[in-house]
Structures are given as C-alpha cells and as structure tokens.
C-alpha cells in the first residue's frame, strides 16, 4: 500500500533525500568510527599538527611501535590506570539497578494497573516531575546527609539512589504495558484455581516479557549513562566508568594520557553498540510506547 505513494516520486527528489540520508548517516556514525580507528594510534597521529591524513595512515605509530596499529592506549587504560575496576563497578551497579527496579517495578505496576483507582494520574505526574528535575539538584540534597551518616562513597548507596531516581519512570512504563493485558487473563487463571501470586507468576509474567525487557533496557541505560550521581556519590576506589573517564581528563597534560582516555571511551561505547545492535526494536518500541501513551 505504501509503495503506491512512494513510486511516483520524481528522480530529483529521491536523489536529494538519499543524499540527505547519507549526510545524516555520516554525521551520526562517523565520529564513532573515527574515534575507534584513532584509538589504535599514538597521540601524535590522532591529534596531528602536520597533516590530518596521519591519523589514517598512522605514520608516527609506525615509527614508534613498528606497526600501524597499537594497543598501547588500551593497555595503559586497562592495566596502568586500572580501568577494569571501573568496568566491574559499572557491571555491578547496572546489574543491581536493573534487577531491583524491575522487581519493584513489575510488582508495583501490576498492583497499580489492577487497582483501578486514580493512582495512574499521580504516577504520571511524579514521573513527569522527576523526568524534569535535573538529578544534580537532588544529589545536592543527598550529599550532606550521606556524609553525616557515613554512607557516602559506597556502591550500594549509589545503587539505591539510582533505583529511586529510576523508579517512577519504570513504574509508568510497566504500568502502560500491563494495561494492554486484559484483566480476563488473570481472572480466568484464578478461576482455574491459581492464587493471586501464581496468576501473576505463571500467566501474566510470560505475556509481559517484552515489556519487562524493554523497561529493563531503559533502566540499564540510565544506570550506565549516569554521570552526576556516580561522579558525586562514589569515592575514588569505587568509581564507575563514566566518572573514571572524566577523571582521566584532569590528567591529560602528560603525553599518552589522552590516548588512555580515547581507549577508555571506545571501551565504554562498545557495550552500547552491541546493545543497540541486538535490541534495536525494543528500544524503538520503548521510546514510542512512552510517546503514544504520554
């Protein structure tokens, strides 16, 4: 049906739109490829004063390391600067944030969607206000009490804060997924002799998986991409990847350190790359689910 509309397009229009797409693709993707390519060079090549083509051919890299590609930046970042610790911390934070917020989220959203009271409106308002509030204003509120109670700098504190910041959004998203599931489904399960919890566990959850996965993806992204909370609430040993990279920047003056940061950035981007590759459809559906509902 769409083809009937598309086919009678004039050649010039098609040409322009293809050109535009190519242009956009270049803007969107080129920086990533460029940085990935450059992360295997030495600093004098990636930031070349003489000639920008050095970054492609790797003249200096060749003369320093004997090859056009070098893993020195990665070695420096992962081994010398102990980036692997940050990676483990990030993995821990993300895992626990996703698990906790999904557990609370599914149970809470299920209850909300079946209660029929006007909770949903207030939930939406809270989610909206929370979405609008710069997280840093909240962090400013957390900091002093956390210092006083000696909770500052621990991974667990950060996880709790991230879950709390995430929760209204998770609840709202899962709530709109649960509403799509007809009430008759759990009613018939209960008629067949399930308890309330069994109905939830064996009937609703299997139907809900796509929604749970989508919501989980978004809470993962939030935990992974967060800068403010992790930078201010974690002590130096416990830092996750993003504040760690921000920390690299402070020490860029000495030669070679810039390449550590470049290598670390590429390492941190890689999981996201894989994520988008496998879960593209879920991400798109999650974004649009919010739009259609909101």
């Amino acid at each position: 049906m769409t083809s009937s509309v598309v086919e009678n397009k004039s050649f010039s229009l098609r040409f322009i739109s293809t050109l535009f797409i190519a242009f956009w693709l270049m803007i969107a993707a080129f920086p990533f490829f460029w940085t990935f390519w450059g992360s295997f060079k030495v600093e004098l090549d990636f930031f070349s004063k003489e000639n920008w083509t050095n970054a492609i051919t790797g003249v200096r890299t060749l003369s320093t390391h004997g090859e056009a590609f070098t893993g020195a930046g990665y070695e420096g970042a992962w081994v010398q600067e102990e980036f692997w610790k940050a990676v483990i911390n990030t993995a821990l934070v993300c895992l626990f944030v996703v698990c906790t917020s999904l557990t609370i989220g599914t149970l809470g959203a299920y209850a909300l969607s079946r209660s029929g009271f006007r909770y949903a409106f207030w939930l939406l308002i809270i989610a909206l206000i929370f979405r609008a509030m710069p997280p840093i204003t909240l962090v400013a509120g957390y900091l002093l009490p956390f210092f006083e109670w000696g909770l500052w700098g621990k991974l667990s504190t950060t996880i709790v804060v991230l879950v709390a910041i995430n929760q209204p959004f998770t609840l709202w998203m899962l709530h709109s997924f649960f509403q799509k599931i007809p009430k008759e489904l759990d009613e018939s399960a209960m008629v067949d002799g399930c308890t309330n919890f069994q109905a939830f566990r064996y009937v609703i959850l299997p139907v809900m998986w796509p929604g749970v996965i989508t919501t989980g993806l978004f809470s993962f992204l939030l935990a992974y991409n967060d800068f403010v909370v992790t930078a201010l609430l974690l002590s130096k040993e416990n830092q996750t990847m993003v504040p760690k990279i921000a920390g690299f920047l402070g020490t860029t003056q000495t030669e070679g350190n810039v390449m550590f940061a470049v290598a670390a950035v590429v390492s941190a981007t890689f999981p996201l790359f894989v994520l988008v590759m496998f879960f593209q459809r879920q991400i798109v559906s999650g974004l649009t689910a919010g739009a259609v509902k909101g």
Binding site: A28, L249, V265
Partner: peptide, 18 residues
C-alpha cells in the same frame, strides 16, 4: 535506524568527548 540511534544511546559525556 541503527546508526541514527547511536548518538542518542551513547553516554552524553562520552559522546561529547568524542
């Protein structure tokens, strides 16, 4: 769509660094 999503999904700090 895959390539278009990248600038949005990537961590803001990392994107701006790149």
């Amino acid at each position: 769509i895959f390539f278009s999503l990248l600038p949005m999904i990537v961590t803001p700090l990392i994107g701006s660094l790149i």
